[in-house]
Nucleic acid binder design. Sequence first.
DNA 1: TAAAAAAATACAAACGTTTGTATTATTATA
DNA 2: TATAATAATACAAACGTTTGTATTTTTTTA
Lengths: 343, 343
Amino acid sequence: MTLRKRRVKLEDIARKLNISIATVSRALDKNPRVKLSTRDKVFKMAKAMGYMPNQIAKSLSSGKTNIIGVIIPRYDEPFFIEVCRGIDHYAREYDYKILISSSRNSFEFERENLISFEKGLVDGIILSPTHETETFVHIKNIINKGIPVVLFDNIREEVQGADHVSIEDDKASFSAVEFLIKKGKKRIAFIGGIKEKKVFQDRYKGYLKAMQEYNITIYEELILHCDSLDRECEDAEIQKFFNGLSIKPDAVFTCTDNYGLLTMKTLLKLGYKIPEEVSVIGFGDLGLGEVFVPSMTCVAQPSFEMGQKVAELLIDQFNEATDVNHRKKVIKLDTKLVLRDST
Amino acid sequence: MTLRKRRVKLEDIARKLNISIATVSRALDKNPRVKLSTRDKVFKMAKAMGYMPNQIAKSLSSGKTNIIGVIIPRYDEPFFIEVCRGIDHYAREYDYKILISSSRNSFEFERENLISFEKGLVDGIILSPTHETETFVHIKNIINKGIPVVLFDNIREEVQGADHVSIEDDKASFSAVEFLIKKGKKRIAFIGGIKEKKVFQDRYKGYLKAMQEYNITIYEELILHCDSLDRECEDAEIQKFFNGLSIKPDAVFTCTDNYGLLTMKTLLKLGYKIPEEVSVIGFGDLGLGEVFVPSMTCVAQPSFEMGQKVAELLIDQFNEATDVNHRKKVIKLDTKLVLRDST
DNA sequence: TAAAAAAATACAAACGTTTGTATTATTATA
DNA sequence: TATAATAATACAAACGTTTGTATTTTTTTA
């Protein structure tokens, strides 16, 4: 039975070479204050002894952990994962790692996660607020402590005290619905998400605006605000919705890729022909719309880029003066409609 | 311009109350060595001053960070994300956070990530080796330093010195192919992944074994080892494969959900009727097979459970004696064939 | 009410680095 | 070759906790 080995530390190297810890530290840093021959000796000894710096000690000493905390509402939504990939991509360039935490669509979890990050583990925080997040105080608290924060997606007005990145949801959905209208569609259904969520409110607004602007009748029956929190429930909810309709839609605008796919599946099962009898548009465009038969027209949301941008804003904050009242940056990314076979 | 505030620390509370730092620390820990009235005073003062413990200092002092490092080959594969979700779910129960890192399918990145974790940032590591990972030395190094490691998915023989969790890929694919054979299929195509990857080798073995055992002719032309590393290339590769066939398959066994979906899409476009003319089976069952029309029969791999199990093994290691030569645990999870419309 | 026992608290080292300042060793200058 | 200038290194404090031991205070006991 071999016991876990004690780590080699600077002191061990120093003792072996009969020099001071400070010199060892500086040598490894390639600080010009130490003689080249000493530096070489130190490097050789460090290698020979299998030295590995202690990141925690470094962090304590430097006050930097080089970790970015990321809080997303859920894992099983490709959009959030794609944003994380973007964050990771950018952050890695600057030698930051990411600690991902899910708020599981719960405000309480979101708060807990924030508090846990506040304990000094991360240098900054990237957060996508849940639909339950109505108040800004927990975020404001963090900012006031001088911890850099950047938000993305789902930004409510109340929450606009921080840097954030999002798309113009109302405009994006307006354009998509306008496209359907111009195609001559008259009975355009709307499948949205949780009503409390800002992004879905905005996408709904865009839908309404387009309908009103072009004087298209809005049928309440053709509107669904899906409030399921996982995939299975979404499936059931959407099936139920279409099964119960008395008006046959000739187009469906949906607020996520998954809603779009579930809609297509349900409509196909009900015998609708897509796109001949009904058009469907999804929102997000995270790869699956392209695979489905027929392939799905989507509002393409630049998720990866959003992640990169969010990381960029955060790292900018790290490098700025530690001014609490810094000028907030608000970035709106462009979306576009990707046309495919479903319309 | 307000400068970033200095954090409140134990010393600040101690000074205000005119007591020692040790007492403050113990009071906050609810250590019975400190008087109740003192404890109360400390708690009130801590609250009033907005005290937040410094996790880094705690970690340095205790030698524990309560962070689990997770290395996956890629983000855009729902299987890995689902495993991460399982890890997160289990780990959170035990107050661990997860630091996710992608090796981007590269051995070099995998090694770098391991080294970065070795710097003491994490208490243990969960790793899914890439297809490029042929040698075990980098992992063995970590284990020898006494850092707990658990592996999952894609475990080569050479790598079996560590705890690991996987499924029996050969058996799972054998059963799936056997199912097709028993349905009377004769020209069964195989769509696998990167040849160097153990999981794909095993799934291929299972296919071959079933074909041989039942004396079915194997057409080399109907076998594809897909070596694309991202979704777009996979799409192109699979389209090209089916476009060039001289033999019409009556069934296709594929090694991932995505291959299965892309296969269905391609076949449908080529005018095949599914399942009348050709059956398709996917591997993974991460939700999309159910949405596609027709819905896809899949080998269901328990990804979430795999994550939970992996986390469990790791946390077990934390709690065991710090014995380097501890008895390795190998867990094989069960798969099952979920029948749907594509067969 | 003084001594003993128990309770409460304080002191100080430790965790492994970094870094400003002090000291020693070396080289250059006159 | 003594002295100034510079290069190289050592010392020690700091980062914010935890925790074993020492000390002080309070309570108990005779």
